[in-house]
Design a protein around this nucleic acid. Sequence first.
DNA 1: GTCACAGTTGTCCTC
DNA 2: CGAGGACAACTGTGA
Length: 633
Amino acid sequence: MKKPRVIFWFRTDLRLTDNVALQAALDLNPAVLWPIFTFDPFYAFQKRGGSNRWQFLLDCQHDLSASISRLNPKNQLHVIRESPKTLFPKIFKAWRVTHLVFEKDTDAYARERDEVVMKAAADAGVEVVIRGGRTLWDSDEIVAKNGGKPTMSISQLQAAGDKIGPIPRPIPAPKSLPDPGETPIDFEHDQPETEPDLNAECRVDKDTTFESIAGPKGDFGVVTLEELGFPSATASQRGGETLALKKMDTLIKDVKYMATFEKPKTSPAQFEPQSTTLLSPFFHFGALSVRTLYWAAQDAVDAFKGKGASSPPVSLTGQVLFRDMYFAAQAALGPVYTQTYKNPYFRFIPWHLPSKIDPATGLTTGEYHVDSEEANVWFRRWKEGVTGFPWIDALMRQLKYEGWIHHLGRHSVACFLTRGGCYIDWKRGDAVFAEWLLDYEPACNSGNWCWLSCTAFFSQYYRCYSPIAFGQKWDKNGDLIRKFVPELKDFPAKYIYEPWKAPIVEQRKAGVKIQGNGLEKEDGVYPKPMFDFNERRGVCIAAMKTAYNVGLHGNDEAVLNGTWRDLFPKDDDAEIQQRYQTDDGEHADEGENLEQHAGAGVAGDKRAAEVKSPQAAPKKQKKISDYAAPTRR
DNA sequence: GTCACAGTTGTCCTC
DNA sequence: CGAGGACAACTGTGA
């Protein structure tokens, strides 16, 4: 029998260490092995992502390719610029492939993509080998042990994990790699769909990535930011497995830090160095395996002799357990995991700026309805970091520039945008994080936005982060603000969280005027706050109470057919019912699913200080357990 | 079914 | 300055 000719398909596992799937490929004892990465136009055009994250990905690929070449100078990472859906059928034939090996991926698009590829493999007589390694436990197995339901709490995840058994220990990197086979590309190069381009705004130039299948030099080299038409990255964090392992080495030496880590006690205001490990971007691209971190942390706890070793959920191990919880929730719910509409586990709350839904698929389109011009301005000011609340603005500018903010910083800005300030749909924030975060992970990002907006996973909506007090608790002097909002760098600490309260003479001394809305940039000016936070907190908590009393979820009939409004109290409060503005036909609904009625008038949020209780709304429409678990494939 | 209690990460006031 | 309780009141878990 002839020895196997194997493609190893790298995806979200850009590493050699603890790569269980790669080991499975080597266990086939292949004659030749092509390590490949399909540069999928889907991610370039139909998923949001800015320069910082692209750079991190490209770093990971350069590093991986170099590591491969170190093991075998004849080999490298072969980056192929085409959709895997069209590429594989051609390449299976052209390269006379016998086996395709890859790591399992449970993201919604990845499942669909892999189905297509597996079908092509079956048609071509190529054997497919899949191994798990992206999560601590296999997400589908977790779902099965959780009664086929999404894991909606950390205790459910832990119970399901206990039923499966111990988390596998990481395995070492291979010591050698076979040669690659020949790489003829004498087949047609399918051109990608480039419209709509969700990243059009981020590009400074047109994309040329897909002009050739093996790159401009024909050497299957790594794509560049220039080819993608993206500007240079601004983030200081860089990617790659080598760097990740170096970070791990440093961490492991600090047994006390590892063993006593408690997430809620780490400061969101600390930068250079940050108070947490900053390993999440490496997990996202698979440059480091979560099992490596898990066992390093667990071993540190076991080795720690002092007092105060931490345990889940606050410990380092707890952090990756939460990641598994979100992944298993996603594995159970499929595409609706990243939206409320059609999702039986996510609470329906009539936020401002709700998502548009594609009637054909029932999925969000990425666009949104503008039910309130005021809320739309708030959203723009939030995104650009000119809300007039320095703590929020510093975090948002840090996010844009560095591609990272501390977890509690994310809590602050997410609470502020949704249930604790603007009352804007969590999907708007989710999309901004998707664009800017280095570590953007759909499962975790969607999960955390739901958590913070009290849409799912968490429900104590009356616990509301103050854009003033929360930052002050960690950073009295406002150093994070001084760093990322330089307009305020000379402001007295007494007023730095509430600059609008500073007397004119103090403003003059600090060289900054507090005026305007921040959208017209002007030197020496920092905007006034975009609303009275205490007033907004009251409005939001009352509106949340109403939404909770009505008790709808994303898959309830009233949400699907748009009659949910009938269940909410009829009053003029903008936060109770999204109201379409009748004086602006542009925003009137164009016959889509969410059935936005033309409202009774222009929303006037300022009036909404007191909110009436819902009239005779049922305490609970339905219990979650009344729903059949949504099925996938 | 009921009830008490806990829940990774709130704020503000009093003592 | 730190601890503790009120605020108003959510869901999931387990006895």
